[in-house]
Write a protein that binds this DNA or RNA. Structure first.
Lengths: 148, 148
DNA sequence: ATGCCTGCAAAATATTTGCATGTAA
DNA sequence: TTACATGCAAATATTTTGCAGGCAT
């Protein structure tokens, strides 16, 4: 048996990079995390929910359960590799772009899009109630497709 | 048997008012809607989720199921008597104040609070993508209790 | 060895649907 | 009477938990 985690002749530099990311985040390198990491952090930044990611993982022949996808998404979030975005009551979305920005949400097809940072800003912040402090401000601009 | 819906000697003006509201919204007057309407539209404006409202209804000796609470909340929303607020992925909240305003959300105890209109405003709106129009802008200011 | 970390089955939670029944016209 | 509205049991959807087994030390 060969160790599936140790570097070998067939390892791509992308995979090596992903391992480094996981280790830096304090997470063990496992088959499941490599598969999900590859889907999440390769190519374009994106917004996924657990179910979509699970479907992609299955399509990519990774063998893992939806529960593992949920747990991994939360671990990645806690590690700062993802940011959770609350745009739809139906399901939780995760954003691979963890920088400070806001979102469009297309209600028709449940699609999350980034709002370019600087495209909007606040005139003033509301005073938080006694004994409270602001942790984060989320803006969701809801969109509808124009039916012409 | 007396009709429980027809006005009678024991009907309060509040109940009469509620009936008028339901009829104006195009909804039939039923025992369940009267009970929920009384809990929602009497007294202070408030933010509830389905489960909380169901608990209150049970405490008020109204006999109805959680499914009915969900359906009624959605009917009231469609009729413009409530506004749905997406602040927490865990569950959907409904606001009895349907005017345009934003929300604080206390993460520690899942509490929704109104931000006074005018306490914050935007410097500029982002341009929606081609073929889309803005339906609504939601701002959620997330709060944490200061641990001193 | 040993004790923390993993991934998943099963449980818990949240919401929607389908249909028997009730009700207005 | 008739057709549509209503409320709820059951189904579905979403998320979390508990624990058997794996892995680093």
């Amino acid at each position: 048996m060969t160790d599936p985690i140790a570097p070998d002749d067939t390892e791509t530099s992308q995979q090596a990079c992903l391992k480094a990311i996981l280790r830096m985040a304090g997470l063990r390198v496992t088959r499941q995390r490599m598969a999900l990491g590859e889907l999440l952090f390769t190519g374009e930044r994106q917004h996924v929910n657990a179910d979509e990611l699970h479907q992609k993982a299955i399509a990519a022949r990774a063998n893992l359960t939806l529960a593992t996808v949920y747990n991994t998404l939360h671990q990645f979030s806690r590690a700062g590799l993802l940011r959770e975005v609350t745009v739809d009551a139906g399901s939780t979305y995760f954003d691979t772009d963890t920088s400070n920005h806001h979102h469009f949400f297309v209600e028709d097809d449940k699609q999350v899009l980034d709002i370019h940072p600087g495209a909007m800003s606040f005139d003033g912040f509301p005073e938080p109630p006694e004994g409270m402090e602001i942790t984060h401000i989320d803006v969701v601009v809801r969109l509808r497709k124009i039916s012409s």
